[in-house]
Design a protein around this nucleic acid. Sequence first.
DNA 1: CTATCTCCCTAACGGTAGTTAGGTAGCAAT
DNA 2: ATTGCTACCTAACTACCGTTAGGGAGATAG
Lengths: 205, 205
Amino acid sequence: MTSTAVQGSQGEPSAGATAPVGARRQILDAAADLLRHGYDATTTRAIAARVGIKAGSIYHHYESKEAIVSAVVNEGVRVVHEAVTSALDALGPQASPRERVQAAIRTHLHASLEHSAYTSASIRAFSFLPAAVQEGCRVERRRYEEIWRGLVAEAADAGLLAPGVSQDSVRLLLLGAVNWAGEWYRPERMSIDEIARDFAASILR
Amino acid sequence: MTSTAVQGSQGEPSAGATAPVGARRQILDAAADLLRHGYDATTTRAIAARVGIKAGSIYHHYESKEAIVSAVVNEGVRVVHEAVTSALDALGPQASPRERVQAAIRTHLHASLEHSAYTSASIRAFSFLPAAVQEGCRVERRRYEEIWRGLVAEAADAGLLAPGVSQDSVRLLLLGAVNWAGEWYRPERMSIDEIARDFAASILR
DNA sequence: CTATCTCCCTAACGGTAGTTAGGTAGCAAT
DNA sequence: ATTGCTACCTAACTACCGTTAGGGAGATAG
């Protein structure tokens, strides 16, 4: 079901090195889903079982478990980054800061709670991952953070923030709230669009 | 080599079975600190090493690793619960809803980021814990949630919330932001009191 | 002195983790 | 027919996990 959600932007499908295809993609899909329950619950044997092969055969496609998890986390950050970026682009240049912030919240929540197991894995399990894996996507994470830094700055310029509060605080408040949503979100209780609307309305005035 | 490295302090040994003392307390302390890196990183041998005993000796004090982690998480919830409760009580009955919300945020952050490894463990690692451990403190967690439900209701009655926003959204926004703070907080960047002030000012008007 | 209790040790148990060496079947090109 | 490559399997390796059985040292009580 998630085969089309993550599509490489560059390189032909048969190139093989940059965009995972076939078994490599299946391995990443399985790992991303298993990462919901943590790094140690994501065993090579469990990944292999979901793909339909044996544990040893994984090493024909990836050199280590760490390499697999690293690829998953990196793709998770990339997916949410691209989703939010294109959502903001789709709004057009005349959109208000309020609309843009709300769209970013909504898109981030959709990506991490519905569309991509990669994104939710990269958010929830991140701080329990091996240091090498964390280091490997720190740059991409910073880049994504910059989007939110810009959004908050726009809101501040438009006078939408509470007086006297630092933009850092607002950004961390917002990102914390959306990243923590994976801990309590249940689709039957409140829709993602409602959450995004309430979050934006609470922060902006 | 029978070096007794872990000479029990045993100042008040006859406190009873409810409050851990001596070696039991040291075991919980070690486990709480190790839980920062996840449940599986919290090995019985690592706990024992910190206490200064061997892995097998742990089972003289606790019946299982799960029992240890369960005790840690429960105490973590209890600590933050009591801290916030007494902070609110200390404010007195004439304190404004704004003061009370800000005090709750500040106290929760202090407890989870500075004072108690128990609290930070119970927050960050919670969703990756065995189901039995999670279930064992679900009641206490609900009770703590009720405090915030009440605070948000007070703020709503005082007209401090954004119009048209559900109280559930505000509570989840707030709790998400403070619970996620463990992922980015660095004491040299911003003080906890500043964070609490900014968070409260952003949500309340 | 003996008995008992507490606290800790050594040594191992069975289980599972990540990983690897070596083999095999299918297929394509020479 | 031979070679070589891809994709997989079997079977094992070492390491470490939670846990347990049994024993020993020291204090205490009778």
